[in-house]
């Protein structure tokens, strides 16, 4: 295995995530076959660094993000996450530990809302703050500020997002995903189908988080949206190699 060629552009800030030899297959039992998503992926992600994940459709970009977030189970490899308490391998960490990390410091930002019945938009956005111990009134106030920033109309704040249009749902979801300052963020096409103001608010928030040291790796349909944030690019795909930061075996 040939992983971890040091990147010349790598910042000197501490490593947050160190991925080694990560692989993902899907065993599709009803088809009696295995789908190979990616093999032998390795890279380091540093504090305050923003990595753009590139590759053709189906190259496994979203799959990689979901595997790191552990919505998918990796087949092999490591994803060493550096916490204040020590290093934990996300590839094999206990489910409860992953739950804890998701609540405290690892976020996943996607275009899809996990709509929950009968929960108001502002409640949904405020929830991560509330789980982190912010009092109700202050959490709601902060949630409203973010809904406003993402241009969600005030008359919708107390309504149920399950009834919203796709674009509005996405804004609620982004506000929720970004309201807490995480340490590590996975971004799965968060700008797709956003209007200009919401996209602007999103990029401004990402810049703010980056400046605060949040490490980010993401897939963007239009990378131009976040051009100013990108420190490094990683390509995923059969035999494709960018900046030596990783390898993909066929």
């Amino acid at each position: 295995m040939n992983m971890h060629t040091p990147s010349t552009s790598a910042p000197l800030s501490p490593v947050v995530l160190s991925v080694e030899g990560l692989a993902k297959h899907f065993e599709m039992h009803h088809l009696r076959r295995t789908l190979f998503a990616f093999e032998n992926v390795g890279f380091d992600l540093h504090e305050g660094e923003f990595i753009l994940l590139k590759g053709e459709n189906g190259a496994g970009k979203s799959t990689l993000l979901r595997t790191l977030y552990r919505s998918y189970l990796p087949r092999a490899g490591h994803a060493f996450y550096h916490t204040k308490e020590g290093i934990i391998d996300l590839a094999v960490a206990a489910d409860v530990d992953i739950s804890l990390l998701r609540r405290r410091e690892i976020g996943f930002v996607t275009q899809f809302l996990q709509a929950r019945p009968r929960v108001a938009a502002e409640e949904l956005v405020a929830e991560p703050l509330r789980l982190a111990g912010t009092p109700y009134a202050r959490a709601i106030e902060e949630a409203r500020r973010w809904l406003a920033a993402f241009d969600v109309k005030a008359e919708l704040w107390a309504a149920y997002p399950s009834t919203f249009s796709g674009g509005e749902q996405q804004k609620v979801n982004l506000a929720r995903a970004l309201i807490l300052p995480q340490r590590l963020l996975f971004l799965d096409e968060p700008t797709a189908s956003l209007d200009r103001q919401a996209r602007h608010a999103l990029v401004a928030r990402l810049a703010e988080l980056k400046a605060a040291g949040v490490a980010m790796i993401g897939v963007f349909h239009h990378p131009d949206d976040v051009a100013e944030l990108i420190d490094r690019e990683i390509s995923l795909g059969i035999k494709a190699i960018a900046d030596g930061a990783y390898n993909v075996a066929e």
């Binding site: 065993e27 206990a94 409860v96 530990d97």
Partner: peptide, 14 residues
């Protein structure tokens, strides 16, 4: 488990 890696015991959950 038919695929995936063996998960470790909890270490962050105290």
């Amino acid at each position: 488990m038919t695929s995936g890696l063996e998960r470790q015991p909890p270490c962050l959950m105290l």
